[in-house]
Design a protein around this nucleic acid. Structure first.
Lengths: 127, 127
DNA sequence: ATTTATACTGCCGAGTCCGAAGTATAGAAC
DNA sequence: GTTCTATACTTCGGACTCGGCAGTATAAAT
């Protein structure tokens, strides 16, 4: 997507490079801020072409309605692709698109960090 | 859900490093999945010691009740620190903790990517 | 006495999420 | 021919979360 241009025009001060537009509120971020969205991208990225049932099983604690909504949203956003096979019983496979792969690469270190932090001991709201 | 579905030995994938524990559902991730949480971490990281009003202004579109809740959660989770000065009118400053800084480093590339994607053209639900 | 400024909290209606149950289909079992 | 099975979802009611606006506390300035 982003061709890295010749890195000669970049300022030597990276701190205020993105001062004006710090954080996108709408678009993809709004989607990723919904429950399980980030984990969903990672899971699909990890188990390759994933069927609905596999995903549901991997999570264990997500309701099918929410999972279905989340999948829909990610497909619409172009992050996941959905392939439906004309078989009975039906078979549907979800996979990361190219965009989704990019996203996954950014998400993975975050989730790994979160895992570690949780494993250690943060005083995360236990109330 | 107690039985361990052990991985098929037939799969010849090299990417099984973290197959067993793909994505943390609770803890920090649940917090970050709430609205504006990730952006909030970035904003506080960017504008240094940030006052409530500054943050509210930077976002523009967040309700004060939600912002306040989110700040509380992040402070409780040890991601933000809150310093209150005994002045009138009151002054409160939020800052990233060490943990928060770590998180911010993982978050920044993600948000930058999201910005680009949004700027380009994803068919994100615009309905 | 009233105004001003800051950092919130409280309330209510609207939107989002959860769990369980239901839907559609065709082949297999009886 | 009727029932059973399996998959990938919907649909429903209720619970939780969010947004917008109004209100609170304080002391100095007017």
């Amino acid at each position: 997507m982003e061709e890295t241009p010749d890195a000669e025009t970049e300022s030597s001060d990276p701190v205020d490079a993105d001062r004006d537009c710090l954080c996108p509120l709408g678009g993809v971020m709004e989607l990723l801020s919904r429950r399980y969205a980030m984990q969903l991208v990672c899971v699909v990225g990890a188990i390759g072409p994933a069927r609905y049932g596999d995903i549901e099983e991997t999570f264990g604690s997500v309701s099918s309605s929410t999972l279905s909504t989340r999948l829909d949203e990610l497909v619409t956003a172009g992050i996941l692709s959905r392939e439906q096979y004309a078989e009975i019983p039906p078979r549907v496979e979800y996979e990361l698109t190219e965009t989704g792969e990019e996203l996954g690469e950014h998400l993975e270190p975050l989730l790994e960090w979160a895992e570690e932090i949780d494993a250690d001991d943060v005083s995360v709201a236990q109330e």
